[in-house]
Design a protein around this nucleic acid. Structure first.
Lengths: 136, 136
DNA sequence: TCGGGTGTACCGCTGTCATGGTACACCAGA
DNA sequence: TCTGGTGTACCATGACAGCGGTACACCCGA
Protein backbone atom coordinates (compact mmCIF):
# COMPACT_ATOMS: atom_id res chain seq x y z
CA UNK A 1 0.00 0.00 0.00
CA UNK A 2 1.63 3.16 -1.22
CA UNK A 3 0.39 6.68 -0.67
CA UNK A 4 1.28 9.68 -2.75
CA UNK A 5 0.73 12.88 -0.81
CA UNK A 6 0.80 16.35 -2.28
CA UNK A 7 1.45 18.81 0.54
CA UNK A 8 1.19 21.84 -1.73
CA UNK A 9 -2.16 21.09 -3.32
CA UNK A 10 -5.49 22.51 -2.25
CA UNK A 11 -6.73 19.15 -0.98
CA UNK A 12 -6.02 18.60 2.74
CA UNK A 13 -3.54 15.83 3.50
CA UNK A 14 -5.94 13.87 5.68
CA UNK A 15 -8.50 13.92 2.87
CA UNK A 16 -5.98 12.61 0.36
CA UNK A 17 -5.31 9.68 2.67
CA UNK A 18 -9.01 9.01 3.19
CA UNK A 19 -9.60 9.00 -0.55
CA UNK A 20 -6.64 6.80 -1.38
CA UNK A 21 -7.58 4.23 1.24
CA UNK A 22 -11.13 4.07 -0.06
CA UNK A 23 -9.98 3.70 -3.66
CA UNK A 24 -7.52 0.99 -2.64
CA UNK A 25 -10.31 -0.92 -0.92
CA UNK A 26 -12.59 -0.53 -3.93
CA UNK A 27 -9.83 -1.78 -6.18
CA UNK A 28 -9.13 -4.80 -3.97
CA UNK A 29 -5.62 -3.70 -3.05
CA UNK A 30 -6.74 -3.49 0.56
CA UNK A 31 -8.98 -6.37 1.59
CA UNK A 32 -11.19 -7.00 4.59
CA UNK A 33 -9.31 -8.00 7.71
CA UNK A 34 -6.07 -6.55 6.46
CA UNK A 35 -4.16 -4.28 8.82
CA UNK A 36 -3.33 -0.74 7.78
CA UNK A 37 -0.08 0.87 8.93
CA UNK A 38 -0.20 2.45 12.37
CA UNK A 39 -0.58 6.21 12.67
CA UNK A 40 2.99 6.65 13.87
CA UNK A 41 4.37 4.32 11.23
CA UNK A 42 2.58 6.01 8.35
CA UNK A 43 3.36 9.43 9.81
CA UNK A 44 7.08 8.80 9.83
CA UNK A 45 6.93 7.18 6.39
CA UNK A 46 5.20 10.19 4.86
CA UNK A 47 7.05 12.72 7.06
CA UNK A 48 3.73 13.99 8.37
CA UNK A 49 2.49 14.60 11.88
CA UNK A 50 0.76 11.59 13.40
CA UNK A 51 -2.24 13.70 14.33
CA UNK A 52 -2.95 14.22 10.65
CA UNK A 53 -2.92 10.47 10.00
CA UNK A 54 -5.07 9.92 13.05
CA UNK A 55 -7.61 12.34 11.70
CA UNK A 56 -7.80 10.46 8.41
CA UNK A 57 -8.22 7.15 10.22
CA UNK A 58 -10.95 8.63 12.39
CA UNK A 59 -12.83 9.71 9.31
CA UNK A 60 -12.40 6.27 7.76
CA UNK A 61 -13.66 4.75 10.97
CA UNK A 62 -16.69 7.05 10.94
CA UNK A 63 -17.33 5.96 7.34
CA UNK A 64 -17.23 2.31 8.44
CA UNK A 65 -14.19 1.51 6.33
CA UNK A 66 -11.71 0.85 9.13
CA UNK A 67 -12.25 -0.92 12.40
CA UNK A 68 -10.12 -0.30 15.48
CA UNK A 69 -8.46 -3.14 17.36
CA UNK A 70 -7.86 -1.40 20.61
CA UNK A 71 -4.18 -1.36 21.38
CA UNK A 72 -3.28 -3.31 18.25
CA UNK A 73 -4.04 -1.08 15.28
CA UNK A 74 -6.77 -0.84 12.70
CA UNK A 75 -8.04 -3.24 10.08
CA UNK A 76 -10.20 -2.94 7.00
CA UNK A 77 -13.78 -3.93 7.72
CA UNK A 78 -15.06 -7.05 5.96
CA UNK A 79 -17.98 -5.18 4.43
CA UNK A 80 -15.93 -2.15 3.43
CA UNK A 81 -15.54 -3.06 -0.22
CA UNK A 82 -19.21 -2.52 -1.01
CA UNK A 83 -19.22 0.84 0.68
CA UNK A 84 -15.99 1.89 -0.98
CA UNK A 85 -17.14 0.81 -4.41
CA UNK A 86 -20.27 2.86 -3.96
CA UNK A 87 -18.24 5.78 -2.71
CA UNK A 88 -15.94 5.47 -5.70
CA UNK A 89 -18.86 5.42 -8.12
CA UNK A 90 -20.40 8.44 -6.45
CA UNK A 91 -17.08 10.24 -6.53
CA UNK A 92 -16.55 9.56 -10.21
CA UNK A 93 -20.12 10.38 -11.17
CA UNK A 94 -19.87 13.62 -9.24
CA UNK A 95 -16.67 14.59 -11.01
CA UNK A 96 -18.17 13.79 -14.39
CA UNK A 97 -21.30 15.73 -13.50
CA UNK A 98 -19.26 18.75 -12.51
CA UNK A 99 -17.22 18.72 -15.70
CA UNK A 100 -20.36 18.29 -17.76
CA UNK A 101 -22.05 21.20 -16.06
CA UNK A 102 -19.10 23.44 -16.87
CA UNK A 103 -18.93 22.19 -20.43
CA UNK A 104 -22.60 22.76 -21.18
CA UNK A 105 -22.69 26.08 -19.34
CA UNK A 106 -19.79 27.17 -21.53
CA UNK A 107 -21.57 26.22 -24.73
CA UNK A 108 -19.60 23.09 -25.49
CA UNK A 109 -21.51 20.57 -27.58
CA UNK A 110 -22.07 16.95 -26.62
CA UNK A 111 -19.82 15.74 -29.40
CA UNK A 112 -16.94 18.00 -28.44
CA UNK A 113 -17.39 16.66 -24.95
CA UNK A 114 -17.24 13.03 -26.03
CA UNK A 115 -14.07 13.77 -27.89
CA UNK A 116 -12.43 15.23 -24.78
CA UNK A 117 -13.60 12.29 -22.74
CA UNK A 118 -12.28 9.64 -25.12
CA UNK A 119 -8.99 11.45 -25.50
CA UNK A 120 -8.40 11.62 -21.77
CA UNK A 121 -9.55 8.04 -21.34
CA UNK A 122 -7.10 6.82 -23.93
CA UNK A 123 -4.29 8.83 -22.39
CA UNK A 124 -4.75 7.56 -18.87
CA UNK A 125 -5.50 4.00 -19.94
CA UNK A 126 -2.24 3.83 -21.81
CA UNK A 127 -0.37 5.17 -18.82
CA UNK A 128 -1.80 2.49 -16.57
CA UNK A 129 -1.50 -0.18 -19.24
CA UNK A 130 2.25 0.30 -19.27
CA UNK A 131 2.62 0.31 -15.52
CA UNK A 132 0.47 -2.59 -14.47
CA UNK A 133 -2.27 -4.66 -16.02
CA UNK A 134 -5.74 -4.09 -14.69
CA UNK A 135 -7.85 -6.93 -16.02
CA UNK A 136 -5.21 -9.61 -15.58
CA UNK B 1 -26.49 37.69 -16.94
CA UNK B 2 -27.54 35.62 -13.98
CA UNK B 3 -25.30 34.18 -11.31
CA UNK B 4 -26.06 31.27 -9.07
CA UNK B 5 -23.92 31.35 -5.95
CA UNK B 6 -23.59 28.57 -3.42
CA UNK B 7 -22.33 30.09 -0.18
CA UNK B 8 -22.16 26.75 1.61
CA UNK B 9 -20.08 24.85 -0.94
CA UNK B 10 -16.35 24.31 -0.78
CA UNK B 11 -15.73 26.55 -3.77
CA UNK B 12 -15.02 30.17 -2.78
CA UNK B 13 -17.63 32.67 -3.85
CA UNK B 14 -15.21 34.82 -5.81
CA UNK B 15 -14.09 31.75 -7.74
CA UNK B 16 -17.66 30.82 -8.61
CA UNK B 17 -18.12 34.29 -10.06
CA UNK B 18 -14.87 34.12 -12.02
CA UNK B 19 -15.87 30.78 -13.46
CA UNK B 20 -19.38 31.81 -14.36
CA UNK B 21 -18.22 34.98 -16.07
CA UNK B 22 -15.70 33.03 -18.13
CA UNK B 23 -18.26 30.42 -19.10
CA UNK B 24 -20.74 33.14 -20.05
CA UNK B 25 -18.14 34.76 -22.29
CA UNK B 26 -17.25 31.41 -23.87
CA UNK B 27 -20.93 30.76 -24.49
CA UNK B 28 -21.46 34.18 -26.07
CA UNK B 29 -23.84 35.38 -23.38
CA UNK B 30 -21.36 38.10 -22.50
CA UNK B 31 -19.78 39.73 -25.54
CA UNK B 32 -16.80 42.04 -26.01
CA UNK B 33 -17.46 45.64 -25.04
CA UNK B 34 -20.41 44.75 -22.88
CA UNK B 35 -20.46 46.20 -19.38
CA UNK B 36 -20.65 43.90 -16.39
CA UNK B 37 -22.60 44.93 -13.29
CA UNK B 38 -20.66 47.11 -10.83
CA UNK B 39 -19.20 45.54 -7.73
CA UNK B 40 -21.75 47.19 -5.45
CA UNK B 41 -24.65 46.37 -7.75
CA UNK B 42 -23.76 42.71 -8.04
CA UNK B 43 -22.90 42.58 -4.35
CA UNK B 44 -26.31 43.80 -3.27
CA UNK B 45 -28.00 41.56 -5.83
CA UNK B 46 -26.25 38.46 -4.48
CA UNK B 47 -26.26 39.68 -0.85
CA UNK B 48 -22.49 39.42 -0.73
CA UNK B 49 -19.80 41.85 0.32
CA UNK B 50 -18.59 44.07 -2.48
CA UNK B 51 -14.98 43.14 -1.73
CA UNK B 52 -15.74 39.59 -2.75
CA UNK B 53 -17.05 40.75 -6.11
CA UNK B 54 -14.10 43.09 -6.46
CA UNK B 55 -11.73 40.22 -5.91
CA UNK B 56 -13.42 38.19 -8.62
CA UNK B 57 -13.23 41.15 -11.02
CA UNK B 58 -9.57 41.64 -10.18
CA UNK B 59 -8.87 38.05 -11.06
CA UNK B 60 -10.82 38.40 -14.29
CA UNK B 61 -8.83 41.53 -15.05
CA UNK B 62 -5.57 39.69 -14.38
CA UNK B 63 -6.77 36.95 -16.75
CA UNK B 64 -7.42 39.57 -19.44
CA UNK B 65 -11.15 38.93 -19.52
CA UNK B 66 -12.36 42.24 -18.09
CA UNK B 67 -11.05 45.72 -18.68
CA UNK B 68 -11.49 48.55 -16.20
CA UNK B 69 -12.92 51.92 -17.15
CA UNK B 70 -11.65 53.94 -14.25
CA UNK B 71 -14.55 55.46 -12.38
CA UNK B 72 -17.10 54.02 -14.79
CA UNK B 73 -17.07 50.26 -14.36
CA UNK B 74 -15.68 47.28 -16.20
CA UNK B 75 -16.28 45.85 -19.65
CA UNK B 76 -15.58 42.54 -21.34
CA UNK B 77 -12.45 42.68 -23.48
CA UNK B 78 -12.92 42.26 -27.20
CA UNK B 79 -10.49 39.36 -27.37
CA UNK B 80 -11.82 37.63 -24.28
CA UNK B 81 -13.88 34.98 -26.04
CA UNK B 82 -10.85 33.10 -27.36
CA UNK B 83 -9.24 33.07 -23.96
CA UNK B 84 -12.44 32.00 -22.26
CA UNK B 85 -13.10 29.22 -24.72
CA UNK B 86 -9.62 27.90 -24.11
CA UNK B 87 -10.09 28.24 -20.37
CA UNK B 88 -13.38 26.39 -20.61
CA UNK B 89 -11.79 23.55 -22.56
CA UNK B 90 -8.96 23.31 -20.07
CA UNK B 91 -11.41 23.37 -17.18
CA UNK B 92 -13.52 20.60 -18.64
CA UNK B 93 -10.54 18.48 -19.62
CA UNK B 94 -9.12 18.89 -16.14
CA UNK B 95 -12.37 17.83 -14.54
CA UNK B 96 -12.62 14.79 -16.79
CA UNK B 97 -9.00 13.93 -16.08
CA UNK B 98 -9.58 14.11 -12.35
CA UNK B 99 -12.64 11.89 -12.48
CA UNK B 100 -10.82 9.43 -14.69
CA UNK B 101 -7.90 9.24 -12.32
CA UNK B 102 -10.21 8.40 -9.44
CA UNK B 103 -12.11 5.87 -11.51
CA UNK B 104 -9.05 3.99 -12.70
CA UNK B 105 -7.36 4.15 -9.29
CA UNK B 106 -10.50 2.58 -7.85
CA UNK B 107 -10.47 -0.26 -10.35
CA UNK B 108 -13.35 0.94 -12.50
CA UNK B 109 -13.18 -0.35 -16.07
CA UNK B 110 -13.26 1.85 -19.15
CA UNK B 111 -16.69 0.54 -20.11
CA UNK B 112 -18.20 1.22 -16.73
CA UNK B 113 -16.76 4.68 -17.05
CA UNK B 114 -18.29 5.27 -20.47
CA UNK B 115 -21.62 4.20 -19.09
CA UNK B 116 -21.42 6.74 -16.27
CA UNK B 117 -20.39 9.43 -18.71
CA UNK B 118 -23.21 8.78 -21.16
CA UNK B 119 -25.75 8.59 -18.38
CA UNK B 120 -24.74 11.92 -16.92
CA UNK B 121 -24.53 13.46 -20.37
CA UNK B 122 -28.03 12.37 -21.19
CA UNK B 123 -29.34 13.63 -17.90
CA UNK B 124 -27.88 17.09 -18.18
CA UNK B 125 -28.59 17.43 -21.87
CA UNK B 126 -32.26 16.73 -21.26
CA UNK B 127 -32.32 19.31 -18.47
CA UNK B 128 -30.90 21.98 -20.72
CA UNK B 129 -32.91 20.87 -23.71
CA UNK B 130 -36.10 21.57 -21.82
CA UNK B 131 -34.99 24.89 -20.44
CA UNK B 132 -33.45 26.55 -23.45
CA UNK B 133 -32.19 25.52 -26.82
CA UNK B 134 -28.44 25.59 -27.29
CA UNK B 135 -27.86 25.30 -31.01
CA UNK B 136 -30.70 27.62 -32.00
C1' DT C 1 -17.77 72.73 -7.88
C1' DC C 2 -20.14 69.04 -6.01
C1' DG C 3 -22.59 64.73 -5.55
C1' DG C 4 -23.01 60.06 -6.78
C1' DG C 5 -21.23 56.53 -9.18
C1' DT C 6 -16.99 53.59 -10.04
C1' DG C 7 -12.82 50.39 -8.61
C1' DT C 8 -9.19 49.85 -4.97
C1' DA C 9 -6.47 49.39 -0.65
C1' DC C 10 -6.15 48.39 4.02
C1' DC C 11 -7.28 46.18 8.43
C1' DG C 12 -9.42 42.77 11.29
C1' DC C 13 -12.32 38.76 12.23
C1' DT C 14 -13.29 33.88 11.61
C1' DG C 15 -12.70 29.19 10.34
C1' DT C 16 -9.77 25.48 8.53
C1' DC C 17 -5.61 22.95 8.27
C1' DA C 18 -1.31 21.13 9.78
C1' DT C 19 1.82 20.74 13.36
C1' DG C 20 3.97 19.84 17.91
C1' DG C 21 3.64 18.36 22.49
C1' DT C 22 1.75 15.72 26.20
C1' DA C 23 -0.99 12.44 28.45
C1' DC C 24 -4.06 8.51 28.72
C1' DA C 25 -6.13 3.69 28.22
C1' DC C 26 -5.45 -0.45 26.07
C1' DC C 27 -3.12 -4.82 24.37
C1' DA C 28 0.58 -8.30 23.41
C1' DG C 29 4.73 -10.36 24.41
C1' DA C 30 9.00 -10.94 27.13
C1' DT D 1 4.75 -7.44 36.05
C1' DC D 2 6.98 -4.55 32.89
C1' DT D 3 7.93 -2.71 28.37
C1' DG D 4 6.83 -1.18 24.01
C1' DG D 5 3.48 -0.89 20.72
C1' DT D 6 -1.31 0.66 19.57
C1' DG D 7 -5.32 4.50 19.05
C1' DT D 8 -7.24 8.59 21.32
C1' DA D 9 -7.85 13.04 23.48
C1' DC D 10 -6.53 17.31 24.60
C1' DC D 11 -4.30 22.13 24.05
C1' DA D 12 -1.52 25.73 21.84
C1' DT D 13 0.54 27.59 17.85
C1' DG D 14 1.26 29.30 13.15
C1' DA D 15 -0.21 29.85 8.48
C1' DC D 16 -3.58 30.80 5.27
C1' DA D 17 -8.09 31.69 2.87
C1' DG D 18 -12.45 33.89 2.77
C1' DC D 19 -15.00 37.62 3.90
C1' DG D 20 -16.74 42.05 5.73
C1' DG D 21 -16.19 47.03 7.08
C1' DT D 22 -14.25 51.30 6.12
C1' DA D 23 -11.93 54.78 3.78
C1' DC D 24 -9.71 56.38 -0.33
C1' DA D 25 -8.86 58.01 -5.31
C1' DC D 26 -10.97 58.47 -9.50
C1' DC D 27 -14.50 59.86 -13.19
C1' DC D 28 -18.77 61.64 -14.96
C1' DG D 29 -22.66 64.68 -15.28
C1' DA D 30 -25.48 68.27 -13.27
Amino acid sequence: MYFSIDTDGAVPIYEQIVRQVKLAVADGILVGGQRVPSVRQLASQLAINSNTIARAYQELQADHVLEPLRGRGMIVRRDAINRCTKARNALVADGVRRALADALAGGMTADELREVFEMELQRQSSLIGNGKSREA
